[in-house]
Amino acid sequence: MKKVYVIEDFCIGCGTCMVYCAAAHSEYPKDLLKAFKLSSLKPVPRLFIEEEEGNSYSLMCRHCDEPLCVYSCISGAMFKDNRTGVVKVDKERCVGCFTCVIACPYGFIREGSENGRSLPLKCDLCKDSFDMPQCVEHCPNEALRYGEE
Protein backbone atom coordinates (compact mmCIF):
# COMPACT_ATOMS: atom_id res chain seq x y z
CA MET A 1 0.00 0.00 0.00
CA LYS A 2 0.99 3.61 -0.37
CA LYS A 3 2.57 5.02 2.76
CA VAL A 4 4.67 7.99 3.75
CA TYR A 5 8.40 7.33 3.85
CA VAL A 6 11.07 9.61 5.20
CA ILE A 7 14.25 10.11 3.20
CA GLU A 8 16.62 10.39 6.09
CA ASP A 9 19.31 12.23 4.17
CA PHE A 10 16.99 15.16 3.60
CA CYS A 11 14.79 15.37 6.65
CA ILE A 12 15.93 18.57 8.33
CA GLY A 13 13.63 18.34 11.33
CA CYS A 14 12.11 21.73 10.61
CA GLY A 15 8.66 20.68 11.77
CA THR A 16 6.73 21.94 8.78
CA CYS A 17 5.16 18.49 8.46
CA MET A 18 3.95 18.70 12.05
CA VAL A 19 2.34 22.06 11.49
CA TYR A 20 0.44 20.94 8.42
CA CYS A 21 -0.40 17.58 9.96
CA ALA A 22 -1.85 19.23 13.02
CA ALA A 23 -3.85 21.65 10.89
CA ALA A 24 -5.08 18.93 8.53
CA HIS A 25 -6.62 17.13 11.51
CA SER A 26 -8.08 20.23 13.10
CA GLU A 27 -11.43 21.92 12.77
CA TYR A 28 -10.09 23.88 9.79
CA PRO A 29 -8.11 21.34 7.78
CA LYS A 30 -7.47 23.70 4.89
CA ASP A 31 -6.62 26.91 6.69
CA LEU A 32 -3.46 26.97 8.73
CA LEU A 33 -4.12 30.23 10.46
CA LYS A 34 -7.69 29.38 11.41
CA ALA A 35 -6.61 25.92 12.49
CA PHE A 36 -4.21 27.36 15.01
CA LYS A 37 -6.00 30.55 15.92
CA LEU A 38 -9.68 29.62 15.89
CA SER A 39 -9.81 25.92 16.80
CA SER A 40 -11.37 25.24 20.15
CA LEU A 41 -8.73 22.55 20.76
CA LYS A 42 -5.05 23.01 20.13
CA PRO A 43 -4.27 21.18 16.87
CA VAL A 44 -2.18 18.10 17.52
CA PRO A 45 0.12 16.52 14.94
CA ARG A 46 -0.13 12.81 14.22
CA LEU A 47 3.50 12.44 13.36
CA PHE A 48 6.69 12.63 15.35
CA ILE A 49 10.08 14.16 14.71
CA GLU A 50 12.90 12.28 16.30
CA GLU A 51 16.50 13.33 16.44
CA GLU A 52 19.62 11.30 16.74
CA GLU A 53 23.16 12.62 16.56
CA GLY A 54 22.16 15.63 14.55
CA ASN A 55 19.96 13.67 12.19
CA SER A 56 16.24 14.01 12.29
CA TYR A 57 13.41 11.89 11.06
CA SER A 58 9.76 12.62 10.58
CA LEU A 59 7.87 9.45 11.44
CA MET A 60 4.29 8.32 11.52
CA CYS A 61 2.02 5.24 11.54
CA ARG A 62 3.26 2.43 9.28
CA HIS A 63 -0.25 1.05 8.74
CA CYS A 64 1.23 -2.37 9.51
CA ASP A 65 0.14 -5.52 7.74
CA GLU A 66 -0.28 -7.07 11.15
CA PRO A 67 -1.40 -4.07 13.14
CA LEU A 68 -0.96 -4.69 16.84
CA CYS A 69 -3.09 -1.67 17.61
CA VAL A 70 -5.97 -3.25 15.73
CA TYR A 71 -5.44 -6.64 17.36
CA SER A 72 -5.28 -5.01 20.76
CA CYS A 73 -8.27 -2.75 20.45
CA ILE A 74 -10.76 -3.65 23.14
CA SER A 75 -13.77 -2.16 21.41
CA GLY A 76 -13.15 -3.11 17.79
CA ALA A 77 -12.89 0.59 16.93
CA MET A 78 -9.40 0.39 15.48
CA PHE A 79 -9.50 -1.26 12.10
CA LYS A 80 -7.52 -1.67 8.95
CA ASP A 81 -9.49 -0.51 5.94
CA ASN A 82 -9.57 -3.45 3.54
CA ARG A 83 -9.65 -1.21 0.51
CA THR A 84 -7.03 1.41 1.32
CA GLY A 85 -4.96 -0.44 3.92
CA VAL A 86 -5.19 2.58 6.21
CA VAL A 87 -5.37 1.81 9.93
CA LYS A 88 -8.11 4.01 11.32
CA VAL A 89 -10.12 4.66 14.44
CA ASP A 90 -13.89 4.54 14.38
CA LYS A 91 -14.41 7.51 16.66
CA GLU A 92 -17.94 6.50 17.54
CA ARG A 93 -16.92 3.10 18.83
CA CYS A 94 -13.67 4.08 20.52
CA VAL A 95 -13.83 4.29 24.32
CA GLY A 96 -10.43 5.96 24.68
CA CYS A 97 -8.80 3.20 26.73
CA PHE A 98 -5.44 3.81 24.98
CA THR A 99 -4.56 0.13 24.75
CA CYS A 100 -3.51 0.93 21.19
CA VAL A 101 -1.09 3.55 22.52
CA ILE A 102 0.82 0.93 24.45
CA ALA A 103 0.38 -1.73 21.80
CA CYS A 104 2.05 0.20 18.99
CA PRO A 105 5.70 -0.86 18.97
CA TYR A 106 6.75 2.43 17.42
CA GLY A 107 4.86 4.57 19.87
CA PHE A 108 3.16 6.24 16.92
CA ILE A 109 -0.27 6.64 18.48
CA ARG A 110 -0.78 9.69 20.62
CA GLU A 111 -3.19 9.91 23.50
CA GLY A 112 -5.56 12.77 22.91
CA SER A 113 -9.08 13.95 23.19
CA GLU A 114 -11.83 15.44 21.15
CA ASN A 115 -14.86 17.21 22.58
CA GLY A 116 -13.95 16.04 26.05
CA ARG A 117 -13.69 12.39 25.03
CA SER A 118 -10.42 10.51 25.13
CA LEU A 119 -9.35 9.42 21.69
CA PRO A 120 -6.17 8.02 20.23
CA LEU A 121 -4.68 10.26 17.55
CA LYS A 122 -2.87 8.71 14.65
CA CYS A 123 -1.90 9.20 11.04
CA ASP A 124 -4.72 8.48 8.61
CA LEU A 125 -2.73 9.63 5.55
CA CYS A 126 -5.08 12.64 5.45
CA LYS A 127 -7.58 10.48 3.57
CA ASP A 128 -10.54 12.35 4.99
CA SER A 129 -9.76 15.77 3.62
CA PHE A 130 -6.97 15.52 1.05
CA ASP A 131 -5.63 13.42 -1.81
CA MET A 132 -2.08 13.80 -0.61
CA PRO A 133 -0.84 13.50 2.96
CA GLN A 134 -0.19 17.07 4.02
CA CYS A 135 3.19 16.30 5.52
CA VAL A 136 4.39 15.13 2.12
CA GLU A 137 2.70 17.95 0.26
CA HIS A 138 4.39 20.62 2.34
CA CYS A 139 7.79 19.13 3.13
CA PRO A 140 10.12 21.95 2.10
CA ASN A 141 13.02 19.63 1.34
CA GLU A 142 11.06 16.81 -0.33
CA ALA A 143 12.23 14.52 2.44
CA LEU A 144 8.87 12.77 2.67
CA ARG A 145 7.66 10.48 -0.04
CA TYR A 146 4.18 9.08 -0.48
CA GLY A 147 4.20 5.85 -2.41
CA GLU A 148 4.85 2.15 -2.43
CA GLU A 149 7.83 0.89 -0.49
Partner: peptide, 9 residues
Amino acid sequence: IYRCGIYRY
Protein backbone atom coordinates in the same frame (compact mmCIF):
# COMPACT_ATOMS: atom_id res chain seq x y z
CA ILE B 1 1.85 7.97 28.65
CA TYR B 2 3.51 9.59 25.63
CA ARG B 3 4.92 6.98 23.26
CA CYS B 4 4.70 4.24 25.86
CA GLY B 5 4.36 1.59 23.15
CA ILE B 6 8.09 1.78 22.61
CA TYR B 7 8.77 0.63 26.16
CA ARG B 8 6.39 -2.26 25.75
CA TYR B 9 8.22 -3.26 22.62
